[in-house]
């Protein structure tokens, strides 16, 4: 066990975690931020995707101690309850880009990362970039449409 300090969703936090604790478990079990989900054990499904310093990572593929001193953003950090949704979240709603909701936090987080790297990506780019995120409900069509639209909305924001 050891203490780590990091920033999560804009707040400084200190955690007592075992050396082998994965970041996903630190977020879910210690901080009770349960938006990131475990969908597989092999870093394939992307349901656990969060941002470290603004870049998407799979929180099941990183130790909590590796987040020491770094800034983590989870799906819960995009918009406070009662506040308007982030443009990418809104685009998922507007395009029916979610069904059961389990992969959705990871999809939104990777969507924002795709927008960051490609500004206004086309559908083909988004489909390629979603290689590491699985959804069993939607067949991806509306997720792709949501990310294309969400990215355009982000680009248009001041």
């Amino acid at each position: 066990m050891g203490k780590i300090s990091l920033e999560v969703n804009g707040e400084d936090v200190e955690l007592d975690v075992a050396d082998n604790t994965l970041l996903i478990h630190a977020l879910r079990d210690h901080l009770r931020l349960t938006g990131a989900h475990m969908g597989c054990d092999t870093s394939q499904c992307g349901a656990c995707t969060v941002h470290i310093e603004g870049q998407a990572i799979k929180s099941c593929a990183m130790l909590a101690v590796q987040a020491e001193g770094r800034s983590v953003t989870t799906i819960e950090g995009l918009a406070d309850d009662g506040e308007p949704l982030h443009p990418m979240q809104q685009a998922f709603h507007d395009n029916h880009g979610l069904q059961c909701g389990f992969c959705t936090p990871g999809m939104v987080m990777i969507g924002i990362d795709i927008a960051r790297r490609h500004n206004v990506p086309d559908a083909a780019t988004v489909r390629h970039e979603l290689e590491g995120n699985l959804c069993r409900c939607t067949g991806y069509q509306n997720i792709v449409a949501a990310i294309v639209e969400g990215a355009a909305k982000m680009e248009a924001q001041p």
Partner: peptide, 15 residues
């Protein structure tokens, strides 16, 4: 549009 989307989009689904 779906009434239930908000909690899923905000990471507040309850599984």
């Amino acid at each position: 549009k779906r009434q239930e989307d908000g909690r899923f989009l905000r990471g507040k689904g309850k599984y």
